[in-house]
Amino acid sequence: MSKFDSEERASIVSMMHDPKRARPQFIRNVDMDKVVDALLRLSMEVSVIRDRLDIHEALAEQHGIAADAVESFVATPEIEARRRERRERLVRGVISDLR
């Protein structure tokens, strides 16, 4: 038996939340108003996505599409490109709030 085998494996995600990996503080003057702007923009976008998803799930059910079809869906390059554009727009908006 190797020296490793008796130890229980820690997940990578739990390693990322180890208090010893605490994040340094880089921003000296935190402007909480800007943080609130960015958080509210994000919450709004999440809410929009959730509502939109509800429509799609209801339509899919009406047309007899099983829930596991979502997991096996493969996006076309056009869909991937559209997603990339949307993500980049969101990132730009949130960071512009923080500046």
Binding site: V70, E71, F73, R83, R84, R87, E88, V91
Partner: peptide, 16 residues
């Protein structure tokens, strides 16, 4: 799909 979407977001964030 969820992991893919999160990783896609991180990619967009890093690119920006």
């Amino acid at each position: 799909q969820e992991e893919h979407a999160r990783q896609g977001f991180v990619g967009a964030l890093k690119k920006y």
